[in-house]
Design a protein around this nucleic acid. Structure first.
Lengths: 244, 244
DNA sequence: ACCTGAACACCGTTCAAGT
DNA sequence: ACCTGAACACCGTTCAAGT
């Protein structure tokens, strides 16, 4: 296997006559979701994007579910390619590692806000893999790093759980804000065009004075500082735990 | 409107000749998702469940998206019906209120683990509504409670954001664990039956010694105490914020 | 070896038609 | 007023057939 491309070398020697590959399909799918949203991703449309009939994909991908799984795996695997990782020597503490990892996952969420919900909500393959840190390699890395830096087994597992919850909550919300634009084809849908007893809570804002008054502040996006602040609090909490 | 049934009284006087109503459709849909999972929910299947053709639903529901919206609204609205709410007088502090609210949302997630991802990931109607506290009434309640107990506007908004992230991260993970059973028809799918270059990470566990050794501990479910612990930490943090 | 045409069962949704 | 039949465009997926 070629480390860089993930393709067998004899496939690459094929002068590109081979149009499809699992790698290319997954990359195209991620690109497609980035641009048009998750719900728009269809085997048939993805085929068209690749200049091929939908049925051809089934040679490389075990159906739609497997395609989604492949997308998630590919995304999470990116964490290992982060160049900054090499700057982290054994001399650095676990806090530096968790900072690095947290920012790596956050970068993923910000680059692919439409894909992140997939990472966040698909059922992991095993009960001890929790979103968004859902890869054996990443979890192994996590545990070794903490344990070699003084965490007991129990504390390391606790930290993994707490860290997962933290990332999930903050990044899913942040991705949701970013993805709202690209989302599922946000139709204008002019008001009152429906004759359905909608029970719609278009109860006017007047009934909710605080929300109305604070609407602007509620809409502000302070994702970055809030993320940093909450991350530091989490690290402090973990620090207190291991020394208590 | 009848407070208990949510039906107009003249509808109830109709001797039940009217089979359908938005209320009944949504309740049946929630029940269906609880039992068979979100992906199984189909307009046609839901119609069959109600003893009716799928097309009939369109008189009460503006298509599938609106149905999902209705489900989310109905679930979140349940928070106001919590009987314990009445035990919270103005004498109780904001901490008691946030404890009550957190446990209310957690109860929702545990009772409907297959529905919770919907609450967590659907784009809110407005940018200042964040999952899972995505209803005007709930947010208004949140803000008034905190502000009348000494929070400044800014602190209250910060608290809303932090609280949302906290609930989302913890409860989505917890619901995911519970929902794994009922989930999307988890097929056995015997190993090796596929000829696809899966790049499957069935790299044996031997390569991940820490994960292997801690597998049992990683699989343990300590949702309840972890939730309580993290909630208290959050409340402490908010407390520190307003008094600093 | 790799891609496709045709086919199947199933979707969401619309609308004219039934009662 | 409420439900349905028929139809349309679109799904995912299989498999025999083409090259």
């Amino acid at each position: 296997m070629n480390e860089e491309t993930g393709l067998d070398t004899d496939e690459r020697a094929d002068h590109g006559r081979r149009v499809l590959s699992r790698e290319r399909i997954i990359l195209t799918a991620i690109d497609f979701v980035d641009k048009r949203g998750l719900t728009a991703l269809t085997m048939r449309r993805l085929g068209r994007e690749l200049g091929v009939e939908a049925m051809s994909l089934y040679r490389y991908v075990n159906g739609r579910e497997d395609l989604l799984e492949g997308i998630v795996d590919h995304m999470v695997a990116q964490l290992h390619l982060d160049p900054d990782r090499s700057e982290l020597g054994p001399a650095d503490g676990w806090q530096a590692y968790l900072q690095w990892l947290a920012h790596g996952v956050r970068a993923l969420a910000r680059e692919h806000p439409n894909v992140f919900p997939l990472i966040a909500t698909r059922h992991p393959a095993a009960p001890w893999l929790r979103p968004p840190l859902r890869s054996l390699r990443v979890v192994e890395d996590f545990l070794t790093t903490l344990i070699t830096r003084g965490f007991s087994d129990d504390r390391a597992v606790l930290a993994y759980r707490a860290f997962s919850s933290f990332l999930l909550g903050h990044l899913l919300l942040e991705a949701s804000l970013l993805g709202a634009e690209t989302g599922p084809a946000e139709e204008p849908l002019d008001e009152g065009a429906s004759d359905v007893p909608n029970a719609d809570q278009e109860l006017s804002l007047d009934m909710f004075p605080h929300v109305q008054r604070l609407e602007a502040q509620l809409s502000e996006d302070h994702s970055a500082p809030e993320f940093e602040r909450a991350l530091e609090d989490l690290l402090d909490r973990l620090d207190r735990e291991i020394t208590e």
